[in-house]
Design a protein around this nucleic acid. Structure first.
Lengths: 148, 148
DNA sequence: TCTTCTATTGAGAATGAGTCTCATTGTATT
DNA sequence: AATACAATGAGACTCATTCTCAATAGAAGA
């Protein structure tokens, strides 16, 4: 059994729930996706593997994966909630190109001491952290210049 | 004419659009709201002023205000998109209490030199910036302790 | 002032992501 | 095998947001 299956099973056990075949398939498909995905894309991928899993079950699995700290919500793509798997990944800053949608990631390392200091100042117990920076990636910057 | 009306009018002019009475009312109501609001709440407030403005028009005005840099999208409250007016406000970090929903704000000042350095490294032209930190405010931290 | 040309608007239908219901199925335990 | 309850599939449902289209407003010129 893979490590993230173990994590999920342990989490489910604390809730009196079980790691069924269906849930294991959803979990493994999540970890097969690009890091960022929305539920509809996940459902589409699952459909290529089997057509006996319903959309409702996929949606139902998402909050479980979230609570198990295996995925986290990230930015919205168009009108859909978007997620990313985080098991074994450190959290990161997202640099999102507003033109082509490319996402570059960098880590929080340099930021954390500053944020910890601010948190202390306002007596806040930090949990999740989400830093999205919108702008233009280098490719889109140069193509902007060409067109003008 | 108030300053933000002027800004909006100038923006609209660049698009060949006009600052109508309806748009001015929506704009002014936005600046009368709590800093964070969703469109439904905005619509409710407008309804107390006049009942001749339709929901569709309010929704239609939002992207214009966004493009004019008068408001920006912030976190989602429940299932609704949430916005905040930003004209004359510097952008800020949001410390969001996962328990009571309180939002504390601090500024980016200390963070910007670090982010600028990262941006340069990955050749990214920074635009909007959104840093949301979830956790517990000091009130909810103490009430947690009481209950345990 | 009257006309003409658009942008603007209101009302309500349409869309679509996400949730819920409920009848059926799976599974662990006895 | 029988019991009990969690899990699931199918599709109905909700509700925020967008779209459509006919009616209106308002600027520019006659």
């Amino acid at each position: 059994m893979q490590e993230h299956e173990k994590v999920f099973q342990d989490y489910l056990a604390t809730k009196g729930l079980k790691l069924t075949r269906t849930r294991a398939l959803i979990l493994n498909t999540v970890f097969d996706m690009h890091e960022h995905f929305d539920v509809e894309a996940l459902y589409d991928k699952i459909k290529t593997l089997t057509d006996s899993i319903s959309r409702a079950t996929v949606y139902r699995c998402i909050p479980l994966l979230k609570d198990a700290n295996l995925i986290q919500q990230s930015m919205r793509t168009s009108s859909r909630d978007s997620f990313e798997h985080i098991f074994g990944h450190p959290r990161h800053i997202h640099w999102i190109c507003s033109k082509c949608g490319t996402i570059v990631e960098t880590d929080y390392e340099e930021l954390t001491p500053i944020l910890n200091r601010s948190a202390k100042r306002i007596k806040f117990a930090m949990g999740e952290l989400k830093l999205n920076i919108y702008g233009l990636c280098w490719k889109c910057q140069s193509s902007e210049n060409e067109n003008q």
